[in-house]
Design a binder for these strands. Structure first.
Lengths: 175, 175
DNA sequence: GGAGTTGTACTCGGATACAAGGTGTCCGAGTTGGCAGGG
DNA sequence: CCCTGCCAACTCGGACACCTTGTATCCGAGTACAACTCC
């Protein structure tokens, strides 16, 4: 059992995006540079989060990614499911039905007890992940992390975020 | 995130082995036939459980596998860790340290908050798995499953289990 | 000087190679049980 | 008839290919900004 390596990158990127101002965006290339990752590959995960409704993407110059909703309403479970897919970790193959002794299908109406137990464990895992909001991660970072690290992160966000340009707003008003 | 497919087979085999009498064994080929699996491949997982101390194996004719201890003292977590390995699902690659802005190592003495959160979730997962004993699985199967299925399973165990031969005991006494 | 138009540069998005771990299979080492031979 | 030695069959154990999934990369579509040209 191993989680995809991209989950770590996705959460870090989401936490970084939580620091940008409302409506502002940050290009994927900047996020990739922050963690020394392949830009093209990171796009894959950012795209997955966009498809899942966790992020929003705006194309064109001065475009990039931003959170689709407030950090308080984004949980780690949302990010993990977006990257890994919604399927549970344990997939019951119903091997109890296959084998030397064949029984009619009516003998297997009750669900497999092993599957139930494994799904119960995964449910607990998801519950903890759902309770961990992105805002908690950011708050914990601000409080506990080294001040130098916090300052560097804030400087990075300030450096690379692309605020919603006023001109585009003007154009919308003009229309 | 996906669990190995062998986990399901391993748990089913362990549950079957819980039905054999004390000291008796069941060959891996019989377990493979019960679930229509490749015998050679199933051996891999049974071997892993043996290495982890969950099962015991006896070689030679009339040999096979048996539980290393009572079903009440074997949890699903033991089996999962034996097959999947003890490493946690989320491995923090410390990507926060890599990137464009380099800080001295003294800035990263505190653990990564994301890693802490993910490990906390996995801890809950493991706690549920540790509380699910193999005896509970067997008891649930006996109570809830279809009577035909229970009868078939009992018949299978009775059919293929190899009791500790009296001759070997005699030989031990003789020595 | 101002508005319209065109070109360019930057962004995301999907399609395409490479690699690793899980899956599946094969062959070898070890041990016990049965059988034959001898006492 | 009983004991002893040998043979053979069955077991687990580790080493070897195959394939799906995740990793990494490249190229193309789309859009906003900026400069240029025309009025």
């Amino acid at each position: 059992m191993k989680l995809s390596e991209g989950v770590e990158a996705a959460i870090h990127c989401a936490a970084t995006l939580a620091g940008v101002e409302d409506g502002a965006t940050m290009p994927g290339s900047a996020l990739a540079a922050q963690f020394d990752l392949s830009p093209s590959y990171l796009l894959k995960h950012l795209n997955a989060m966009t498809a899942a409704g966790v992020l929003e993407s705006v194309p064109g110059p001065a475009g990039g990614y931003r959170l689709a909703r407030a950090p308080e309403r984004i949980s780690l479970l949302d990010i993990v499911l977006a990257v890994e897919g919604p399927q549970p970790a344990f997939r019951c193959g119903e091997i109890r039905q296959r084998g030397s002794v064949k029984l009619p299908a009516s003998a297997y109406v009750k669900p497999c007890g092993i599957n139930v137990a494994m799904l119960r464990a995964e449910k607990a895992w998801r519950a903890v992940l759902a309770s961990e909001k992105l805002s908690d991660i950011v708050a914990g970072f601000m409080n506990d992390a080294d001040p130098r690290s916090v300052a560097a992160a804030c400087a990075f966000v300030e450096r690379y975020q692309r605020p919603q340009k006023s001109s585009s707003l003007k154009r919308q008003e003009r229309k």
